[in-house]
């Protein structure tokens, strides 16, 4: 990767902004698994493995799976955020591998929020 100048940084920001907001590109959804120490201790790796296995088994190619840090509510880990294109992200709590697969089938593929493990929709307030 070349060393950036100020202008390169600006260009890179514009390019990268598209990928993190799901506004451009072909993906229909993004699933973020929250992988802080708390999430991993509660089983986030197993949840992620189950999700990847299911995606592979279903032959789905237009869903982005990504990891992120602690979502804050450590007592309800493992957590994941599901964001469908043009919809507010939904945070899921207390996930198990089976629960994650259910969320994937119902919400990501079917568009139906799994209310029993969904905490809320939307983003947090930033200063």
């Amino acid at each position: 990767m070349p060393r950036l100048t100020i202008d390169d940084l600006k260009k890179l920001r514009e390019q990268a902004a598209g990928t993190i907001t799901l506004r451009s590109g072909a993906a229909r959804a993004r699933v973020t698994i929250h992988m802080g120490t708390c999430g991993i201790a509660a089983g986030a790796r197993e949840v992620m493995a189950a999700l990847l296995k299911e995606i592979e088994a279903q032959g789905v190619t237009d869903v982005i799976v990504t990891t992120s840090g602690c979502a804050g509510l450590c007592s309800r880990e493992p957590m994941a955020t599901v964001e469908l294109r043009s919809q507010a992200p939904v945070k899921y709590v207390n996930l198990t591998p089976d629960g994650m697969v259910r969320v994937f089938r119902a919400h990501v593929l079917g568009g139906e929020v799994v209310t029993e493990s969904a905490l809320a929709a939307g983003c947090e307030t930033t200063g």
Binding site: T67, C70, A120, A121, C123, E124, T126
Partner: peptide, 30 residues
């Protein structure tokens, strides 16, 4: 109707103000 409440209706999240943690749960740290 919306199937789940908004994050801003959940006191745990609503009363927080993220500056240092502005990117938590949003960026891939790697």
């Amino acid at each position: 109707p919306a199937p789940v409440p908004k994050l801003s209706q959940i006191p745990f999240f609503a009363k927080q103000k993220l500056v240092v943690l502005r990117n938590r749960g949003l960026v891939d740290p790697e």
